[in-house]
Design a protein around this nucleic acid. Structure first.
Length: 466
RNA sequence: UCCUCGAUAGCUCAGUCGGUAGAGCAGGUGACUGUUAAUCACCGGGUCGUAGGUUCAAGUCCUACUCGAGGAGCCA
């Protein structure tokens, strides 16, 4: 007997009249007094469910089949037939159903065949993958991951695994989680009464990474085209629909490249990933289209067709000032764009993704390359309608003297960045890169409204359950 | 961290002017049917987030706290 996934059966991979075995979980059961029950079975392999027709001649029909409720697990064996009913092409005429596990208390089983709020399902993080919505998110998450690796591989990039534990004391990208094996109830002190980090596991203070960028630059200046794709941690007390304390970030870094090359790469990258998801997971996208947010498919398709708008920060400020629109915060040169400004630019002003480039030096990180105007740096943010900033990147400062001057200006000590400065001392080249929050990408693809639904087990301030 | 809103059955919600708890779905039983979110009837199901307070009487009014959501800041 051939064993098949629900996806294979629905795709017609099993010939009609063939014997087939399917293993999965019950979505719903409908009984007909004609002497048969209809059991909708899912195994997570695709969005659809397979109808298993169970006749009352099965030995365990009354004892087990009639007690199947949502969530019960089973193995169904039978003949694949063309469905007599409407709504599905194929079904399995069962001649045997092994019930592996019934649901202990059907009334309190949280995943019922009805619509649940996403808030409720967040509290059921271990059971929510059994729902249509979270099954679809998980499959799309995989497809997008795979498409990202595929894109970079095709473009000649190498995936570099940068460290998760870092001793870098000033990455500057945000609040960091401390990594320590010291006994917090009995901390060792030095002669000044301060905590003696020399006694800690690594002999110094260590943290979880907030970015692999500095580390991956070293590999970029050896392998030319590299990227990171791994977990990233921010200890910021952010309570929003766009922030996680633990998320996955993609950071490509390209050598012999400037900001324009960087923006071009970002545009090709996003389009490739969206194209792949459209090609591979249309079943799940259709579900989001119908049940989560109308227009998600058209939004992705349109994204592929249009070129990104590009403008300088200076021009963006001018557009905002001339818009005549009343903002809560006035747009002013030298101050970073507010969320309302970003939304206006990409949603109202151009109606498609916008790359804003060349920001004032004072509001950007030390490693971003100074422009010739002496006021701005070669930084870019890519703003997408409906989500805002989705990518942040820059050309890196490759001139050692300029880098040192910039660090001092920002109150950083160049001697703390020895290995990073070495990269400029030994065969420096212009290079650039960007960072992309993977979950933000998924929010955009699926039309989700909260980033906590884009990762299996969200970690946010005050919550690390499951 | 700040602002706003919310917490009532397993889930989604209603609950009037303060007067002692309701519906749909889900579950159980039965009827009916190659069914499709099946339909119909009946049944079971509640410490109204927690702790105080006001009152003859609190789901309802007041205070504090906890948790959740949306927005802002920070950012990806």
């Amino acid at each position: 007997m051939q064993r098949a996934s629900v996806r294979e059966v629905l795709a017609g991979a099993v010939p009609v009249d063939a014997k087939v075995e399917v293993r999965g979980w019950v979505r719903t059961r409908r009984d007909s007094k004609a002497g048969i029950s209809f059991v909708q079975v899912t195994d997570g392999s695709c969005q659809g469910t397979l109808q298993v027709v169970a006749p009352n001649t099965l030995a365990n029909y009354a004892s087990e089949v009639l007690h199947l409720t949502a969530g019960s697990s089973l193995i169904a064996r039978g003949t694949l037939v063309k469905s007599q009913g409407k709504g599905q092409a194929f079904e399995i005429q069962a001649d045997g159903i092994d019930v592996l596990g019934l649901v202990a208390d059907p009334e309190t089983y949280p995943i019922q065949p009805k619509e649940h709020t996403l808030e409720f399902l967040r509290e059921q993080a271990h059971l929510r993958p059994r729902t249509n919505t979270f099954g679809a998110i998980a499959r799309i998450r995989h497809a997008a991951s795979f498409a990202i690796h595929d894109f970079f591989t095709r473009e000649g990039f190498f995936w570099v695994n940068t460290p998760i534990i870092t001793a870098s004391d000033a990455e500057g990208a945000g609040q960091m989680f401390r990594v320590s094996t010291l006994d917090v109830h009995n901390l060792p002190k030095d002669e000044h009464g301060k905590i003696d980090w020399k006694k800690d596991f690594f002999g110094r203070e260590t943290f979880l990474t907030v970015s692999g960028q500095l580390n991956v630059e070293a590999y970029c200046l050896a392998l030319s085209k590299v990227y990171t794709f791994g977990p990233t941690f921010r200890a910021e007390n952010s309570n929003t629909t766009r922030h996680l304390a633990e998320f996955w970030m993609i950071e490509p870094e390209i050598a012999f490249a400037d900001l324009k090359d960087d923006a071009d790469l970002a545009e090709r990258f996003l389009k490739h990933v969206f194209k792949a998801v459209l090609a591979e997971r249309m079943d799940d996208l259709k579900f989001f289209e119908e049940r989560v947010q109308k227009g998600v498919i058209a939004r992705l398709e349109k994204f592929l067709e249009v070129a990104f708008e590009r403008m300088t920060y200076t021009d963006a400020i001018a557009v905002l000032q001339k818009s005549g629109k009343k903002f809560d915060y006035e747009a002013k040169w030298g101050i970073d764009l507010q969320t309302e400004h970003e939304r206006f630019l990409c949603e109202e002003h151009v109606g498609r993704p916008v790359v804003v480039m060349n920001y004032p030096e004072a509001i950007k990180a030390f490693y971003m390359r100074s422009n010739d105007d002496g006021k701005t740096v070669a930084a870019m943010d890519i703003l997408a309608p409906g989500i805002g900033e989705i990518i942040g990147g820059s050309q890196r400062e490759e001139r050692l003297d300029v880098l040192d001057a910039r660090m001092k200006k920002m109150g950083l000590q160049p001697e703390h960045y020895g290995w990073y400065r070495d990269l400029r001392k030994y065969g420096t080249v212009p290079h650039a890169g960007f960072g992309l929050g993977f979950e933000r990408l998924l929010v955009y693809i699926c039309g989700l409204s909260n980033i906590r639904d884009a990762i299996p087990y969200p970690r946010v301030p005050g919550w690390a359950g499951f």
